[in-house]
Computed example of a mutant assay.
Amino acid sequence: MEILRLILLYAHLIGFALLLGGAVAQYLRGPIRINQAMLWGAIIQVVTGIGLSAPLRDGDEPHPAKLVVKLVLAILILIMVWFSRKREQVNPGHFFAIIGLTLVNAAVAVFW
């Protein structure tokens, strides 16, 4: 089961890289909008996060409160990305909120 957990963790990190990297690239490139990398990164984050939260280890599961906080943040990010994906331009505050929530989600994973 450890190999499955490591594969899910690897995919989770790829989702984070797609989400944050896609946002930074889009911000530097031109009009602020949601790109495909951000959309797929958000989807991968939620799916692999749910897989990582499954009790695959023997008594070494993360704290349930941490899992709930990360799930709520990931779903908020996915909703914000999903409903803005077809707009020609996104409000800068909305766009920076996606980036901020992504960074907060990573901080919860690292520091909690």
Rank of each mutant, 00 (worst) to 15 (best):
V72E: 06
G41V: 01
G22T: 04
W82P: 01
P64H: 07
P64K: 09
A65H: 05
M38F: 02
A54N: 06
M80V: 05
V69T: 15
A65Q: 11
I75E: 08
P62A: 12
L19H: 02
M38Y: 01
I14L: 13
S53C: 03
I32Q: 07
H63T: 12
D58H: 09
I43W: 00
V47K: 02
G49H: 01
Q45V: 13
T48E: 00
L28H: 09
V72L: 07
V47C: 02
S53N: 14
I3Q: 08
T48D: 01
I34D: 01
W82K: 07
W40Y: 05
L20R: 07
I50V: 10
A42M: 03
A42N: 01
I7L: 09
D58I: 08
W40K: 01
H63E: 07
V69S: 05
G21H: 09
H63G: 12
W82Y: 08
G41L: 03
L18T: 06
D60R: 09
V72W: 10
L28K: 15
E61S: 15
Q36I: 11
I32L: 05
I75L: 15
T48A: 10
R5L: 15
K66I: 05
L19C: 13
P31C: 12
M38Q: 10
V24S: 06
W40E: 00
Y10Q: 08
P55N: 08
A11F: 07
A25C: 14
L4G: 10
G15V: 03
L28M: 07
I75M: 13
W40C: 00
P55Y: 08
N35E: 11
I3K: 09
E61T: 09
N35K: 10
S53H: 04
G41I: 01
L67K: 07
L13K: 08
G15H: 03
V47I: 10
V72K: 08
L56A: 01
A25V: 07
L56M: 06
L73K: 14
V69Y: 08
A65L: 14
G59D: 05
I34L: 07
G21C: 12
P55A: 15
A25N: 03
Y10E: 15
I3D: 03
L9W: 05
Y10I: 11
D58F: 06
I77N: 02
L9P: 02
I43G: 01
N35I: 00
M38L: 05
I79T: 14
V69D: 11
Q45N: 06
V46S: 04
K70F: 14
I79P: 13
Q36T: 08
A74S: 14
A74M: 11
G22S: 10
I7K: 14
I75N: 09
